[in-house]
Design a protein around this nucleic acid. Structure first.
Lengths: 200, 200
DNA sequence: GTCTATAACCCGATAGAC
DNA sequence: GTCTATCGGGTTATAGAC
């Protein structure tokens, strides 16, 4: 082999170029969503020609597919308590340092069916795990609510930038959410049974 | 006057046509989002010519603006308890039969800045009211979380159709959410330190 | 491997005939 | 008031030169 640091092989260079394109694509999909990011713009950001992007990925869908692959952030099974904490930890991780691939899918999923499918595919095993850890008959619905809360928080923090959610510390958010998650996951009745509040 | 039912005036007919166009636009914006709905398609659904849509509304943005006007769903101020219940009631209302204009904004807000602004404008007064009703120092963040939960639930129910959230009854969802909302709004410490869960 | 040129097809918006 | 034709722009994708 010749000196690998001075003269990268063709395969290495190709890999590097491909990675540059994917990074640029992830960034743009996350910022603009599927429809508004164009191959041309991605190519420009990556510093290559638009034709080359097509040459590597064939189609825009394929590029999105490769760029927006989610790292199946899986929860370990276990007790209700453990799963709840794992879910909170997973959220905390996503709350500091924007997960750009995740944002790409999130921003695209409302307009691109492929992104929606991808998101569903990534979310469903998590959903099952959470469901399995909840001991009530309506476990599925409770798990869905937990999922909805997680995604609602992420969307409002990163995509919509509404209220104080945009700049609050992850820890602060997690601490406020923990009791909610516990109640949803363990089906305990809240301490305020004395007040059913039928009145408006 | 001539018989009004048999021969509508010019103004009436114009109003009717305009309403048809707006209904078609609302429907398509809700289903496809801003980018993917085209003037041409709206015109076809409304049964008119594309040029006519331009003639009436001038620009696509203006059409969206007219179609996606939100009915400022306001909360009455009051005690923490009252505001919490009002927020739940507001959510319940949106959970059976979500108005199509609201869905149009929701689906468009991640790609169209105008939709995002519109949404923020509709959400912010609500946010302030909730904030005002929460007695803690981190009231703003708590209010933001409540808002995030509401929108997360709606997005997953109507736009993403994930899990059981899509077909659950509004009442069931509200009942599960009530304890969460109370904890977030009243800052009570959860009873979890002694682990009251029946089983692990 | 890289890039230029262009095909083929959409779009929003405009101008003008009837 | 309604529609046809078209302009000027964008896009993905393809074909081919270097």
């Amino acid at each position: 082999m010749t000196d690998p640091s001075a003269r990268p092989t063709r395969a290495q260079q190709r890999r590097q170029t491909e990675e540059n394109i994917l990074a640029a694509a992830r960034q743009m999909f996350a910022e603009l969503g599927y429809d508004r990011t164009t191959i041309r713009a991605v190519a420009k950001v990556a510093g290559v020609d638009a034709g080359l992007v097509m040459h590597y990925f064939g189609t825009k869908d394929e590029l999105f597919s490769r760029a927006a692959t989610l790292p199946a952030d899986e929860l370990p099974g276990g007790t209700t308590e453990q799963v709840t904490e794992a879910l909170l930890a997973s959220l905390a991780k996503r709350l500091d340092g924007e997960p750009v691939a995740s944002l790409a899918v999130l921003r695209s999923m409302l307009t691109n069916t492929d992104a929606a499918d991808r998101y569903r595919a990534a979310a469903e095993p998590q959903l099952s795990q959470i469901t399995a850890a909840i001991p009530t008959a309506d476990a599925e619905l409770r798990a869905s609510l937990l999922s909805a809360i997680v995604h609602g928080v992420i969307i409002e923090r990163y995509l919509l930038r509404l209220g104080r959610l945009a700049d609050a510390s992850p820890d602060q958010i997690i601490e406020l959410l923990r009791p909610c998650f516990r109640i949803l996951a363990t089906a305990q009745t809240p301490p305020s049974t004395s007040q059913p509040v039928t009145d408006g």
